[in-house]
């Protein structure tokens, strides 16, 4: 017993918290990655999560079947990458090429409009029903916690996606250019890199990360037009905890949020599970306003 809590129960909560934390990190990574490169916040990230879950559902149910869910995953990511790239080209690029004076306001308005557009379209096309692509993966036990095969696959898939993303950033030319753009957009442009093309790639990758989270969690949390709402809330909690624009911050913030929710649930009450993250966020902002890994910007 620890503070009156059964240790087995505590260990189950910690495992559950870490598993959900990985997925939280994946949800937040796209937002912070887009911000780090493009210096804009994409408020419609949850809708790309929703889009990913719907595409995964359609691929699995119509063509591939639940056993080939892992084949559907990269197809889903590729589809959402293309959709994201096109939307960036049409809606976001004018922000950089048209001499828009208030870019932050423009980005906020356009991505919130995109949020409403995608959500309304999904509601109209799908109707109110919930769906699941189903899963044939057996239930397993991780430590002392019984978990569904789909949940474990989602967590492992999330870790794999995070590793792939890190490899992309560290080992490829595009990754090098993206990291350089995150440090200084002007320097990258001066070096002859097509920044507009790089933005399109960054936006596509960012939304594809959210779509991967949606696709992985489709058999666990169901598929319906507003299933991305949690992603939006948790994603923004995490990027503030981890530091806006910080990729390590998103990873640590995701895991930390999962753990705090789990420990708050076991030691206080599960009823306020969603509130514990905000308590952490407020406490952190008081101590370190830039977040765990964020850096203070120097204004000229």
């Amino acid at each position: 017993m620890l503070l009156g809590v059964d240790l087995q129960l505590l260990s189950q909560y910690v495992i559950a918290g870490l598993m959900i934390g990985v997925l939280y990190a994946l949800m937040a990574l796209g937002v912070t990655f887009i911000y780090s490169v493009m210096k804009m916040i994409n408020w419609s990230m949850g809708q790309f999560y929703m889009l990913g879950s719907f595409i995964q559902y359609l691929l699995v149910v119509r063509w591939l079947g639940p056993d080939l869910w892992f084949v559907a995953l990269p197809i889903t990511a590729a589809c959402v990458f293309v959709i994201g790239a096109i939307l960036q080209l049409v809606l976001i690029r004018p922000m950089f090429t048209g001499g828009v004076e208030r870019r932050d306001e423009y980005a906020t308005v356009i991505t919130i409009a995109l949020l409403l557009l995608l959500q309304s379209l999904a509601t109209v096309l799908n109707g109110p029903d919930e769906h699941t692509p189903g899963s044939h993966l057996p239930n397993l036990t991780v430590g002392t916690l019984p978990v569904s095969g789909a949940t474990l696959a989602a967590s492992l898939g999330g870790i794999a996606a995070l590793i792939l993303f890190a490899v992309l950033l560290r080992r490829t030319w595009v990754g090098l250019a993206l990291r350089a753009a995150a440090q200084s957009r002007i320097a990258v442009q001066t070096a002859g890199v097509d920044l507009m093309r790089l933005d399109m790639i960054a936006f596509g990758i960012g939304v594809a990360l959210a779509a991967i989270a949606g696709a992985l969690l489709a058999p666990v949390y169901l598929v319906y037009p507003t299933n991305g709402a949690v992603t939006t809330t948790k994603g923004f909690e995490i990027i503030i905890i981890g530091g806006l624009g910080s990729i390590p911050g998103a990873l640590v913030g995701g895991l930390l949020l999962g753990l705090v929710e789990a420990l708050g649930s076991v030691f206080i009450a599960p009823a306020y599970q969603n509130a514990y993250g905000f308590v952490l966020l407020i406490a952190l902002l008081l101590i370190r306003p830039t977040g765990l890994f964020g850096e203070r910007l120097r204004a000229a």
């Binding site: 559950a16 949390y221 949690v230 809330t233 599960p270 599970q273």
Partner: peptide, 8 residues
């Protein structure tokens, strides 16, 4: 709005 009811 919760999706993970495992703690409860």
């Amino acid at each position: 709005a919760s999706t993970d009811l495992t703690p409860q």
